[in-house]
Design a binder for these strands. Structure first.
Lengths: 237, 237
DNA sequence: GAGTGGTCTAGACCACGGT
DNA sequence: CCGTGGTCTAGACCACTCC
């Protein structure tokens, strides 16, 4: 005869999620505490705890000491995107990849960059422009500014051979990043290199990265028309 | 005299992450197994396991039974967005919210919808168009198709009073969703209601949701010009 | 103060997957 | 086969926070 405890934490999570979905546990209402659930499922409290943690991580419940756990009134849905390394993204879909450095210059930072990277009066940045090709067609144009106060080594890198992103991954890992997605009309530079009419709607992806409080780089990626960013989110995605 | 074990799993994770970041543990190389790490940190294996799990969850290491754990050659960076409920997003920023249903019709599904929702020959869908206002200005136009085979109750809902999204959250929770972001030129309908020139670059957010294998709804949100989607990702975000 | 979740421990068994 | 990570247990103590 087996003891009652037969659940893995994922099974227990599944049971509890069902109760939330079919409103056996109603939005905003408290659910039994860990000890009681452990008794009910015939498992250790740690197992129930892990299941509840997971539900909380994925936005189904709120947990507070003393106050207990409650079903969120509105489930908090999230979408997660892998931030791709362009070269790998293209190669993995079986296309050919090419890269061309268009511009490299040590310049005083424009105001928008000073602001985005919190540069204060340290205004020396390395500015790069590059074009990435997919199947010999322009795929994305990259404008980038690198904070030389933080990453002075970047001056010695050969960005004609390795893209700034890949060099930075290896040489200046970041601990915090800010991403922005938007739709803009193609500007003069992008239009020229992507071979499209100025003003064509294009998808723009902006990323600034930081190591603790030190800004590393600002990258603005402008994709060729038709680019879509897609993600599938499973219930625990 | 205290035993050596003084670390929480987060502290241990922090130490191990440092080793990865300063390449004491090099990309692609194996790291010691859980038993050895537990000895080193003077903690239980479960504690080390939790720390390693977290590193794996966040894309810093790969773990395989028997093969052990290795530092990922290229850290896998992710960005997570909360999918906002428009009304709450607007209200929480202190603006006024308004909503207007523009159209409601039971129609045969257009081909793109049949395809996106995998409708087969069950072609009856409820089509809605609605406009959301922020501070009395048009903010986003929503085109939506609801699969009546799955959510027949939707025919009885009063979508003039409650937005489809909020009704569906309460009445047809989903277990899987697919999100797509893109930049498009504003079409005739959107231009008219957002009061912009046709062809203006606008941000478009498309979401289809599913309950197991049954599609629920397809929503296409077209935002007024200037909309940006932003997220900050901490090292363990 | 007291109830709840957060975490740690020591030990055990299991499941996967490389050899 | 057998080493590795994945998980469970039973018990303990701690930390937060509501009352």
């Amino acid at each position: 005869m087996k003891p009652a405890g037969r659940g893995t934490w994922q099974e227990i999570r599944g049971i509890m999620l069902d109760r939330i979905l079919n409103q056996q546990w109603k939005p905003g209402e408290p659910i039994p505490n860990e000890v009681k659930l452990a008794e009910e499922f015939g498992s250790a409290r740690a197992t129930v705890n892990r299941a509840l943690q997971s539900l909380a991580d994925h936005g189904w419940i709120d947990r507070k000491r003393k106050a207990g756990s409650r079903v969120k009134p509105v489930p908090e849905r999230k979408a997660t995107f892998r931030i791709p390394v362009i070269r790998e993204e293209i190669l993995s879909s079986g296309d050919t990849y090419d890269y061309k450095l268009l511009k490299r210059a040590q310049v005083p930072a424009p105001a928008s960059v000073t602001n985005a990277l919190n540069l204060g009066d340290r205004r020396d940045v390395l500015h790069l422009q590059a074009l990435h090709f997919c199947d010999d067609k322009p795929y994305v144009i990259e404008k980038r500014w690198i904070n030389l106060s933080t990453v002075s080594k970047a001056l010695a890198a050969d960005f004609a051979k390795i893209s700034a992103n890949e060099w930075l991954i290896a040489n200046a890992p970041y601990t915090r990043a800010e991403f922005t997605f938007s739709a803009v009309g193609s500007d003069a530079t992008s239009s020229k290199h992507l071979k499209i009419e100025p003003g064509t709607p294009v998808f723009q992806f902006e990323r600034s990265t930081w190591d603790a409080e030190n800004s590393i780089t600002l990258a603005v990626l402008t994709f060729a028309p038709g680019y879509k960013l897609t993600t599938v989110s499973d219930i625990f995605g």
